[in-house]
Design a protein around this nucleic acid. Sequence first.
RNA 1: GCGCCCGUAGCUCAGCGGACAGAGCGCUGCCCUGCGGAGGCAGAAGCCAGAGGUUCAAAUCCUCUCGGGCGCACCA
Length: 539
Amino acid sequence: MLKEFVRAEIEVALSKIEIHNHAIDISATDKPEFGDYATNVAFTLSKPLKKSPREVAEQLLEQIDIEKFNKVEVAGPGFLNFHLKDDTIHGVIRDAIEKGDQFGQLNLGEGKRVQVEYVSANPTGPLTVGHGRNAVVGDTVANILDAVGWDVTREYYFNDAGKQMRMLGESVQVRFQQLLGQSVEISEDHYQGEYLVDIAQSILDEHGKTASEKGWEFFKDIAKDAILKDIRHSLGLLGIEFDVYTNEASFFDNNAIWDCLEKLKEKGYAYEKDDAVWYKATEFGAEKDRVLVRSTGEPTYRLPDIAYHVDKLERDFDWIIDILGADHIVQTPDIISAVKVLGYDGDKIYPLFYQFVTLTSGGEAVKMSTRKANFVTLEELINDVSADAVRYFMISRSTDAQMEFDLELAKKQSKDNPVFYIQYAHTRIASILREHQGDSAVDPAVDLSPLTEPEIQELIKKLDAYTDALKETAEHLSPHILVNYAHQLAGLFHTFYERYKVLTDDETTSKARLALVKATQVVLRKALTILGVSAPERM
RNA sequence: GCGCCCGUAGCUCAGCGGACAGAGCGCUGCCCUGCGGAGGCAGAAGCCAGAGGUUCAAAUCCUCUCGGGCGCACCA
């Protein structure tokens, strides 16, 4: 890495003036006259050395091995600017071609086990656009951790127990009865969606009128299976698959929830009041205590959630990441504190919150409620703008940012989606390689000295920055950092492509540029793969 | 009322302690007989919500104010 090359030289220079273990910040510069990389160490050393930043910089400059650089100079109030030698920069291309898929690998996870739980949508209806952000963020975070050396388990928590499932069963039952011509009204609490009419119809087709003698559980089971199948289909379109599905109902079946409840009572963190069982959340700073078991005897979602997290911790993960919408911020601390009360290491649980996508259509707000059935399904969106565009959109911004998504605009502009800009760069590369006898023409030992143009050197430095981008993306669990990186890389490639021909009259130049193109493909492909976006040969 | 996130170009958003603030879309004008124009180049467009503070250095950190979103269920 070029940055590390610079860092090492600064460390040597610092040690000559008896400074050790001082943090060195190096940044890529945004102006050519500032060189390739710059450091601000002179500022941070200014105080301890009791000298002005400029003086420190001058002193440090004397200790730098100038021979290893094209030029090193003090600039502005005390920046130290490094101009690299062409040969140093060219090393990046050789590295990328030689290592291929192994280029820029990091092993931050060291094979440790992480579980990423995402989507976990209730099986009460099709996935909406809102679920899409959860799904794509979760899947990409899993890809990132996988790329960076973690042993990743992707998991979907399936809420197939509780009150909402009864509502689902009853809703389908009502629809079924309506199909038989009975005058039954669907109630306010029920799920209103048309998709339940379809399910009711399929039940009628398959089981006939006799099904009317069955209870709501019968309708619930069929509906649940049909909806799960539909959810998996939608996710499949985005290339999302899970390693493990955990059913909420299993924690009822094996009594895990009641074991948890007993232990919480024993430890003094659960108590009875008004016929309900409460969790002493106030002990951990919450505003009020929370209900674990309703006065009806039915647990709230909280109790199985606690049992589920105990289950996760017993499965020996080193890290547990829950991908959650902003509406879950208040309740998550309860789960973590409860798990700690039960003797587990709750600090292993990391909730990753994302802000909501608000939907508009031609400027008009579109509300999303599965129960009221006025939603746009994820699958509709995928069909309208393509899976790649949906994935790109969902992770192109910080998870902390609320996003506005205009359906009409998205459909109209789907060709202008930035994802195609990145993919087009890859397509151009693939096309060039086709025209030039493909990979076989790329020689890692080729003479790269013709690559002196500033635009080309910018591109090479960006290739080198891949590892930094990946590291930052993984450390912050922020997919959008890698998205921005890929976009910048594609931009620099397009500039290069417009300005310089790969096939020229000069064979040395052609070979060198071909190597650059190949190196760019290696890196672009790696980034796109992690983002879950295809790297097409043709578009 | 309390908690969490956000207020940066007309719109959607990057930048989150460093040297004159960026991208995409939209707008204006250029560039295809040669590796794919889903592209490139140039331009217009910003008191980085406001006010204090910390720092050699603040869009970036702290405090307050004003806007917007999401929560604060015996729904999940």
